[in-house]
């Protein structure tokens, strides 16, 4: 799978996320409180709301519409009404740039 440049590391505040659209898909890219970066599908599995307006708390992302939560490292749904897991994508950082391996 190709690695695709998504953004720069300093585009995302620590303990926050941004939206990244690519190839007709929308993704969410996270900057964890311990300095790591992760990527998931950009829409909540509950009702297709963009997660980019949500709240990152530690390693959880909370959906801005219904407060469903996911662990963005694994995609696991952690709080109702989110039941289905989020798809996650591999991320690598090179020279201050974030690459996502999109399927």
């Amino acid at each position: 799978m190709p690695w695709t440049l998504a953004c720069a590391t300093d585009d995302i505040d620590e303990e926050d996320l941004i939206r990244w659209d690519h190839g007709g898909q929308t993704f969410a890219i996270y900057h964890s409180p311990d300095g790591e970066f992760f990527a998931t599908a950009g829409l909540c599995t509950h009702e297709n709301v963009h997660l980019c307006d949500g709240l990152v708390m530690g390693h959880l992302i909370e959906c801005p519409k219904h407060n469903g939560q996911f662990d963005y490292r694994t995609g696991e749904a952690k709080r109702a009404p989110a039941c289905a897991n989020l798809k996650t994508y591999p991320v690598k950082v090179e020279g201050g740039r974030i690459f996502v391996e999109v399927a």
């Binding site: 009702e47 519409k65 219904h66 109702a80 009404p81």
Partner: peptide, 10 residues
Amino acid sequence: WRWSHARHHS
């Protein structure tokens, strides 16, 4: 009611 309220918000 947890679910009815999710619908109320959607």
